[in-house]
Design a protein around this nucleic acid. Structure first.
Lengths: 160, 160
DNA sequence: TAATTGGTTTGTGTAGCGCCAACGATTTAT
DNA sequence: ATAAATCGTTGGCGCTACACAAACCAATTA
């Protein structure tokens, strides 16, 4: 043991703050999303689908850590709006392959664009670089991967 | 506009990821917190109180962005367990000053310690430094200071 | 005295989700 | 061929958490 003098402090878990921040974001997001026919839950699914397109529903449930039944309901909503498609897998015809449609991608982009104000309000104390860092940390934590390391990389360490 | 070539990409809002991550954390945290007689919502309040001890309930509601009535319920739970105290403010005896008790601080530390496993699971892809960064960003965003706004201002427009 | 404010209680409504059970369709194991 | 397991689907039950509104007391301010 060499150099970690951080034993006296309480651990300072992020869970609670995460909870609070998510609630606040959600609260404001709802009204912004409503004109687009979306609810926060849908945005979660779409966001994941953008990076994990062509997933099985099962795989989706695993990534999202959600019950299968819940995912089904989610996808029903999205499919009813033609934002995603369900295709039968050729290899195993029990499976459904979930595909983001063009319409879905466009809607997602539109929603994210519309959410600028919400983020500005909730993440007000954070400057642009801090927000970028936050996003990267969240993405890393959520999916374990950084899809494409873009040039605007502000992460504190060279993960990519 | 000088050096950021990031205009073609979708905005990549953090909201959805925040939502998902918070849900996952919460899901695991519930079972860990139950033996301690706490629920996630309580931990949120305690965590904020650690940094904003001696706040008015109104101030608490503002920082947490919660309805006053909801905060009352929260504090009722905590006070029933002697984790916080409500003291009348000497200056304005209408107000209640919320104070974290020793018991409350100890309970919070205990809870955070117990949540180590949960965070390890949910934030697995993040190393210690990244987690620290995440916590700092979350805390900054959460307790983000409405200092210039005079306390009497409840108007819906964020003019300040 | 009247109006306002901080906190409290109660009730109504909603969103989101976990969990379980049952079912068709399909695949795999025996 | 028959049985078992798997994927998606539907429906139902229950729970947490919260917003919102109304009405109230106590204390402060006009």
């Amino acid at each position: 043991m060499a150099s970690l003098p951080v034993l006296n402090q309480p651990p300072r878990r992020s869970g609670a703050l995460l909870d609070n921040l998510a609630r606040r974001m959600r609260l404001h997001a709802e009204s912004v999303l409503k004109p687009l026919g979306l609810r926060p839950r849908h945005l979660v699914a779409l966001t994941v689908l953008r990076d994990r397109d062509g997933s099985t529903q099962q795989a989706l449930a695993t990534t999202l850590m959600m019950d299968r039944a819940t995912v089904v309901g989610l996808l029903n909503d999205l499919e009813a709006d033609a934002l995603i498609e369900r295709l039968r897998s050729p290899e195993d015809r029990r499976r459904h392959i979930v595909q983001l449609t063009d319409r879905g991608a466009r809607r997602l982009a539109k929603a994210e664009f519309a959410l600028a104000g919400v983020e500005d309000e909730v993440l007000a104390p954070l400057d642009a670089r801090q927000r970028a860092t936050l996003y990267e940390l969240l993405l890393l934590a959520a999916s374990g991967t950084v899809p494409d390391c873009d040039p605007g990389d502000h992460s504190p360490e060279p993960t990519c």
